[in-house]
Design a protein around this nucleic acid. Structure first.
Lengths: 86, 86
DNA sequence: ATATTATTTAGATATTTATCTAAATAACTA
DNA sequence: TAGTTATTTAGATAAATATCTAAATAATAT
């Protein structure tokens, strides 16, 4: 959970997740969507990957990233648990 | 949302929320539950308050903190929206 | 083999953050 | 009014983080 909260605590990374929600994208495409250097985006992708919220697959020269929403179940549970009073 | 994600991105602060889920507590009680100085806990409480996830009310000498789960709705929505594919 | 394209790794830097101690504010009590 | 208790504010510091440029790795194409 630590890694997941950390991953989500960044505007850029959350925007990446929102983009990957609609379609898989390669690293270059993702980087092009931001005014941030490719290495920085690569670092953000790594943090998202460590949290288990995205995965990557090589397709030729490209590394294609996909969202992985399974891990978000834990987060949903944690939040809903907080809402159950007493 | 930024402040909320920031607030949740800390083990101590998440533990505070879990405690406040069960009952309202004053600052001293909260601080006593951790091996961290009172000023540090005060700072954590401030961050949680800025995020709108807790509120405080003075009762005599004491400041009593309560959880505010309303703000968590936004978070739930954001996560569930990510899960809706395409 | 060499060049080109895609992406990451390495190393550096400025900002943010979690923590501490000491001092300040606020409320109660004798 | 003084003293005590509860909590925060101020100021300092070490660790974590987001970013950059330059170099390295990986795959493709000529």
């Amino acid at each position: 959970m630590n890694l997941l909260f950390k991953a989500l605590n960044d505007e850029t990374r959350r925007a990446i997740l929102e983009m990957l929600r609609d379609r898989d994208m390669n690293a270059g495409e993702i980087a092009d969507a931001f005014d941030i250097s490719k290495p920085s985006i690569s670092h953000h992708l790594d943090i998202l990957k460590q949290a288990g919220v995205i995965s990557s697959e090589r397709r030729g020269q490209f590394l294609v990233y996909s969202i992985n929403t399974t891990i978000l179940e834990d987060l949903l549970q944690w939040i809903m648990n907080l809402k159950e009073n007493k």
